[in-house]
């Protein structure tokens, strides 16, 4: 579903040029969930933003669903992958009602009027249909994140890119959102890339985890290795130790 080869991202120019992602390659199969774990500034979010098409400084090759995508995405290419952001308070326009938030993707893409699909999509993420009338500030953080997930699914992408989707939420709300994401994955056979600093969230959601440090992957762990805490690199070992005191 996703093939990335030799992806590099640099910011700035001349003396100040800094390579944030250093030639990483990975493959994610259809229906698989890949986790990327690392500390702040390791480049994990940059990888995700390059996959989504938000960062245009990348070099290398990205193939989504078999098609190589450009730095400047066409509408067809944008439909392949959508993103859920970390902060549910900042990712929804504060002056748009929920119905507009959910109708916008279809309207912006000029496919249908969008309004008619608001109610079913709210229901799909477990929110009552009358939420369409509300403004974001009338919703709790967890409810907003549900709306953000519903919005990302409006264009029916096959890939969902999740940037720390629960780190701003309370534990119990986090559990609800993670369950919702698992259900949706099953229902729609979605492919996820989940970026997080929280190893326990990653371990719960993912089939495979890449450990990132200073712009490169240093370790790869599968489900079994995660359960038993087997690591192949001192950094991931340290990360494991710190995560489970």
């Amino acid at each position: 579903m996703i093939e990335v080869s030799n992806l590099s991202v640099s910011f700035g120019s001349g003396e100040a040029r800094r390579q944030v992602v250093k030639g990483v390659s990975f493959v994610v199969g259809k229906g698989e969930t890949l986790g990327i774990v690392g500390e702040s500034g390791c480049g994990k979010s940059t990888v995700l933003r390059s996959l989504a098409g938000l960062d245009r400084h990348w070099e290398g090759e990205i193939r989504l669903a078999g098609n190589a995508v450009d730095r400047e995405r066409s509408r067809e290419q944008l439909k392949l992958a959508q993103m859920v952001f970390q902060d549910p308070y900042g990712s929804i326009h504060p002056r748009h009602r929920i119905e507009r938030v959910l109708a916008e993707p279809a309207r912006a893409m000029k496919i249908g009027d969008g309004w008619s699909r608001v109610a079913p999509s709210l229901e799909q993420v477990g929110l009552p249909a009358n939420f369409a009338e509300r403004f974001p500030h009338e919703l709790s953080g967890g409810q907003r994140q549900r709306v953000a997930i519903a919005r990302a699914l409006m264009l029916e992408p096959e890939i969902l890119l999740l940037d720390e989707p629960t780190s701003a939420l309370d534990v119990s709300v986090q559990a609800e959102v993670l369950n919702l994401l698992s259900d949706l994955r099953e229902e729609r056979n979605l492919t996820y890339v989940l970026v997080s600093h929280d190893l326990s969230v990653i371990a719960h959601m993912c089939d495979r985890v890449l450990v990132m440090k200073d712009g490169a992957f240093v370790d790869e762990l599968d489900k079994g290795a995660l359960e038993q805490g087997q690591t192949h690199h001192p950094y991931s070992k340290q990360l494991f130790k710190a995560s489970f005191l």
């Binding site: 993103m83 970390q86 912006a108 953000a148 264009l155």
Partner: peptide, 14 residues
Amino acid sequence: NTDYVAAARLYGAS
């Protein structure tokens, strides 16, 4: 630079 504008770019808003 907000996330909601980033999201709008992702769903192809002109």
